[in-house]
Design a protein around this nucleic acid. Structure first.
Lengths: 207, 207
DNA sequence: TTGACTTATGACATCGTGTCACTTAATATA
DNA sequence: TATATTAAGTGACACGATGTCATAAGTCAA
């Protein structure tokens, strides 16, 4: 996390910094981004950067967190709108993310993030839906909203795994769309097929 | 891919090189590994290294490929043994991988690879089961072996997506085991639950 | 004004990368 | 065998990036 010094900054300076960080991480993936570029863009000295952040990873993950926090809030609002229909909410969030990825100005940053996904990044996306493993609140928040009757589960313990599965598959679909440059229609169709398969089950024995 | 010069090397020298590469990537993840260490371990000059590989990424992915090729062959043999039972084969491959990860000497290298998974690494693992997207052969090899009657699919097109789903979920379970340091029992139990859920379907509506 | 504390700076030591002119070895050719 | 040609091996070097540190500048309260 950024230091308190960073959060003490006045709004405009903080914003300028974040803008510079985003621009650099949009230009290049984490491993190739350079602090020299960030400080040049932000118009601050190299020393200052290290007073705000631990290093470029710190800046990167903070920025990513800002993005995922927003999406997470959106996901929760969807759960409310759909009376806790998990599959429907997941479906909607996927669609909206696809559209945003092909439009919004943050595209290139997110693309770099997704395509160079490290374990931490993937976790960060998992948090999008589940919240931190230790942050019991966040997980419970989702739990409270979901209508379990719409799900084919016997115990509440299984719910956690349903979320794991849905997150893995959804995330993979997003990565696929970006890396294989699928059209939006193709990506949506692929996702629909996989959600159907998940709904109805993969094994004929269980029918 | 390594250069032809590399493949022209005599066996012992090539082996020594690969050993050095593996040792360094076991010590540190891709981004922190250094070529200086590799050449020191292998007893060759820096210039030579660049005559064999394009850079450290090249060496890393080549080594990873050697590992996944082996596992892929094993997966195919399992499909033969189980008369094309996809779920059972997947289950077995997961179990065996877990055991190997906690025993074999390659543990640390694979751990570093898995935990710092970039998109390419994940793809590489997907290839484990599916083969390269362009390598039609490999995908067909799997297709030929799988008993479709055991799967709840209407078309052969859906088979591709079944594989995608199973791969994502299995891969995520392996990552989880390593990153959260689960006991083998916990990891197996989690995986069993998720495979069951996948088999029977997530939605109550489809029952 | 002084002192205490926070913020800002950029030069610097250190390390890693990729290249290149050059040497050495191997192989072919006459 | 002598010579030409091609392949393999080398390490010094230029370049760029990182993280630190001594020092300067700003802020605020007594």
């Amino acid at each position: 996390m950024p230091t308190s010094t960073f959060f003490n900054l006045n709004d405009s300076k903080r914003a300028k910094l974040l803008q510079a960080v985003e621009k650099e991480f949009a230009r290049a993936p984490l491993s190739q981004a350079s602090i020299a570029n960030i400080v040049k863009l932000a118009g601050v000295s190299r020393g200052s950067f290290y007073q705000y952040f631990d290093g470029k990873e710190d800046a990167f993950y903070y920025l990513l967190k800002l993005h995922t926090d927003k999406r997470r809030a959106y996901f929760l609002s969807l759960l409310r709108e759909t009376d806790g229909d998990l599959m429907a909410s997941m479906d909607k969030v996927f669609r909206v993310t696809l559209i945003e990825l092909s439009e919004e100005k943050h595209l290139q940053f997110l693309k770099n993030a997704v395509l160079n996904v490290t374990h931490e990044v993937e976790d960060s996306f998992t948090e999008l839906f589940l919240g931190k493993h230790n942050e019991v609140d966040a997980m419970n928040q989702v739990k409270d909203l979901v209508d379990f009757n719409k799900l084919n589960i016997d115990s509440k313990q299984e719910f956690f795994h349903v979320m794991q599965i849905l997150t893995s598959v959804t995330f993979r679909n997003i990565v696929d769309q970006l890396s294989r440059n699928l059209s939006r229609e193709e990506a949506l169709e692929n996702f629909r097929i996989e959600m159907d398969l998940l709904s109805k089950g993969l094994s004929s024995a269980d029918r």
